[in-house]
Amino acid sequence: MKTLTLTAPAKLNLFLHINGRRTDGYHELETLFTLLEYGDQLTFAPLEQDTIEIHGDVAGIPLQHNLIFRAADALRPYKSAARGVRIHLTKNLPMGGGVGGGSSDAATTLLALNTLWQCNLSIAQLADIGLTLGADVPVFVHGKTALAQGVGEKLSPYPVTEKYYLVVFPNVHVSTVEVFTHPDLPRKTPKLSANWALEQTHNDCQELVKKLHPEVDKTLSWLLRYAPSRLTGTGGCCFAEFESAQAAQRVLEQLPSPWTGFISQNAYESIAHRQLAAWRKDEVK
């Protein structure tokens, strides 16, 4: 069997509303995920021995805390093929940036190994496993732009217009735990009405993250010179929407140092899903 290389896509939260806090400590929320055509790259090479090897850009992360390893290990009980895997990660997405890098890597691992190991699990079953790894993992498993509710596990496909996004990382690593446990986080945004519109939404985490991390505030203000800007998730990445790649590129070329950024179009269906379908088709030829 050939090696399999997939792109683990970034996501943007086009908005994030926090509706309340549950008795178990989790938050009720509503958010619109859109998937980008840019992300980390994972290569999966089958091994004859029953081992899971992780290579590449994983320095400093203990194996048992690595979401790629944890995703692979979670599929071990379901595999039909008596083989292991060597996984190589090329990390393009910033850690702590709010673009879902670790969650996307885990979901992409579930999708790839479900095929390579002949687990024959449904997308719904993979998403259930993914939820044990992180709240954002299921949206990457399903691989569609989606409205998420509950703690993020209730997903409804929601097509949005394809745009070009400039995503800027101000070299700030934001702790999701710190944000969601902070007493100043708004937790009373009313739930969406039946006829809600994107321009009426916001990110409930944005003002708090700006206060905790002034560099994020500076980034949002800088982007606002060129287009409406917003924080994604709990940050620290910020984004602005453009009608063309050329318009976004002109702004990226003016990006202050030491900030970094990338441009990507969004897509209704995940690039990882499309690549996996093409690989399967090629395998049966």
Rank of each mutant, 00 (worst) to 15 (best):
G84Y: 09
V85Y: 07
R86T: 05
I87F: 12
I87R: 05
L89F: 10
K91W: 15
K91P: 04
K91E: 13
N92G: 08
L93N: 05
L93W: 10
L93G: 03
P94A: 15
M95D: 05
V99E: 06
V99G: 01
G100D: 06
S104Y: 13
D105N: 14
A107Q: 05
L110K: 03
L111E: 05
L116F: 10
W117F: 12
W117M: 11
Q118F: 11
S122L: 13
S122G: 04
I123P: 00
I123K: 05
Q125G: 02
Q125V: 06
L126I: 05
L126T: 00
A127C: 06
I129W: 08
G130E: 06
L131H: 05
L131S: 03
T132K: 14
L133H: 03
L133M: 08
L133N: 01
A135C: 08
A135I: 08
D136I: 09
D136K: 09
V137D: 04
V137H: 03
P138I: 11
P138G: 06
P138S: 09
F140D: 04
V141G: 03
K144V: 11
K144P: 01
T145E: 11
T145G: 04
Q149W: 11
Q149G: 08
V151C: 07
K154V: 14
L155T: 01
L155S: 02
P157V: 12
Y158L: 14
P159W: 15
T161Y: 14
E162K: 12
Y164F: 15
L166T: 02
P170F: 15
N171C: 10
N171G: 06
H173E: 13
H173T: 11
E178H: 07
E178Y: 06
P183F: 15
P183I: 14
P186Q: 14
P186T: 08
R187C: 14
R187F: 12
K188W: 13
T189P: 02
P190K: 12
S193V: 08
N195A: 14
N195V: 09
W196K: 06
A197W: 07
Q200N: 13
T201F: 15
T201K: 14
T201E: 14
H202L: 15
N203G: 06
N203V: 09
D204P: 03
Q206F: 10
E207W: 00
E207T: 00
L208R: 00
L208D: 00
V209K: 00
V209E: 01
H213I: 01
E215K: 06
D217C: 08
L220T: 00
L223F: 08
L223H: 02
R225W: 10
R225V: 07
R225T: 07
A227G: 02
A227S: 11
P228E: 12
R230M: 15
